[in-house]
Structures are given as structure tokens and as C-alpha cells.
């Protein structure tokens, strides 16, 4: 059974359909990129996957033992975080909250888990640093560690490389790939950089208020859509 499966799902706000006809599934170990322009319904779909918004039509189901709060989420940066006094350790540890249940404080298990994730992402040396003093790339690693504390099954990333320079972006993608391959963590990443999506992911979901394509990357590259968007500036200009 798939971790997430969508059957003919529609999301709408106040009666207006934002996105319709979603039919896709994410299996264990998949790396799916959701691509599309601004306003194409990507963020709405993310809300749906995180169960923050209910589907207005169709069925969006979690399976394969994935529980509601077992999704590691890496949100777009908000303004609040930019001047927030918090150490790296506090931020990473807060990812373990879903394991607490009704306990008020963190125990040994959560602390071990947070330490492990920091080692995996090579940020143990930043432990006592202030989150706001870190570079953009380091901040994203911290948030990734927090997301991994929350889930070892599925990561959902919303435009994770916005504002990062090219070198750091490549490092971050590399890290994601490693987590996906070595640990078998499924990844769903929203991006508007289709070229990168094609080179990183194994599945593509292309949205434009409806589902334009879902399937493997190689299949996507054979469609006119895939050629058009991933061909780079020159081809795209010629087509126009």
C-alpha cells in the first residue's frame, strides 16, 4: 500500500476549485517533485497532504502505517524566525514533539534521536549556536534535522532552496538524495525549478490547477510538456 494516495481529489476555497483531478500515489522510498507555476495549487496540495486542509472531493488517504503526525515538514521560512532567539538544539529537539504524547518534557529517547539527526546532517558542532546567526544553508539543515526528528517515513519540503546560493543549493539537494537513498525516507518536494526537479527526483507531478502529468521522470521527459519546461531557455523560446 502507498504512503499517500490521491483518488480524483479536488481542493477548493470558498466554492472555487483551486486544483482538481489529482490522481497520484507516493510509495516508500519515492522521491516526488511537485512542479508548477505560482498559484498552480502546489501549496494547497501540501496543506492537503499535511491534513491541514480536507479534500473537497475524492479521497486522500495515508497508508503503509503512516500516521497523521508522522510527516516531517520543512516549511517555507516565515518572518518570525529571522529574529527568533533559539539555539540549534532547541529547534531540532522541537521536531520530537510528536513522540511525546501526553508527556510534558523530553526524555532520553527524544534526546538521542535529536542527537542522531544532527550527526547525520553534520550540524552537531552548531548545537549551541543561535539559529538566526546561521547562514541560509545551515538554517535549512537545521530545519531538515527537525523534520527528520518528526518522521523517518516521509519528508515534505516546500521550496527548500529559495534564497540559497547555487553551491549550497547543490549541497542541499545532494543531502536530500542521500537521505532518500540511504535511509529510504520518501520525499515530496515542491519547487518551481523544473530542471532541478528532473535531475533530482524519480517522479514528477506537474500541476496547473489540475494535474498535467504524474509519473516517472523518464516518462515526463518524453512528453511535450517535459521537453518544453526542462529544455532550458533556448528551447522554450523557440516553442513560443
Amino acid at each position: 500500500m502507498s504512503l499517500i494516495s490521491c483518488q480524483d481529489v479536488t481542493f477548493s476555497y470558498e466554492g472555487r476549485n483551486v486544483i482538481t483531478g489529482l490522481n497520484f500515489a507516493v510509495d516508500k522510498g519515492d522521491y516526488l517533485c511537485i512542479v508548477g507555476e505560482n498559484g498552480s495549487g502546489k501549496s494547497t496540495l501540501i496543506k492537503g497532504i499535511l491534513q491541514l486542509k480536507a479534500a473537497n472531493k475524492g479521497f486522500l488517504t495515508l497508508g503503509d502505517g503512516l500516521r497523521l503526525n508522522e510527516i516531517g515538514y520543512l516549511p517555507q521560512q516565515t518572518n518570525v524566525q529571522k529574529d527568533f532567539p533559539a539555539s540549534v538544539w532547541e529547534v531540532v529537539l522541537s521536531g520530537c514533539l510528536n513522540a511525546l504524547g501526553y508527556k510534558p518534557f523530553f526524555g532520553k529517547n527524544e534526546i538521542t534521536r535529536a542527537n542522531e539527526q544532527m550527526q547525520t546532517l553534520h550540524i552537531s558542532n552548531l548545537r549551541n549556536c543561535c539559529y538566526r546567526d546561521l547562514s541560509g544553508g545551515q538554517q535549512q539543515r537545521v530545519l531538515l534535522a527537525r523534520a527528520l526528528c518528526a518522521s523517518h517515513k516521509l519528508l515534505v519540503l516546500d521550496e527548500p532552496v529559495t534564497g540559497l546560493d547555487p553551491v549550497v543549493t547543490m549541497q542541499f539537494y545532494h543531502l536530500l538524495k542521500e537521505i532518500n537513498r540511504a535511509q529510504g525516507v520518501s520525499i515530496i518536494m515542491v519547487t518551481h525549478d523544473i530542471k532541478e526537479a528532473v535531475s533530482q527526483a524519480d517522479h514528477i507531478l506537474h500541476l496547473h490547477n489540475k494535474q498535467l502529468y504524474f509519473g516517472s521522470v523518464s516518462g515526463y521527459m518524453n512528453t511535450a510538456l517535459g521537453k518544453f519546461f526542462s529544455g532550458g531557455g533556448q528551447d522554450a523560446c523557440n516553442l513560443r
Binding site: L52, I71, Y73, P75, T78, V91, A147, A150
Partner: peptide
């Protein structure tokens, strides 16, 4: 701990 999570990042807190 929960107040910290909700203050630092409400969206993440909701998602978990």
C-alpha cells in the same frame, strides 16, 4: 516545549 514549538513555527507544529 509546546509553547516554544508553536511560537517558533506554527506551520511545522500543526503538521506534527
Amino acid at each position: 516545549n509546546r509553547i516554544f514549538a508553536v511560537t517558533f513555527d506554527e506551520n511545522f507544529a500543526r503538521a506534527t
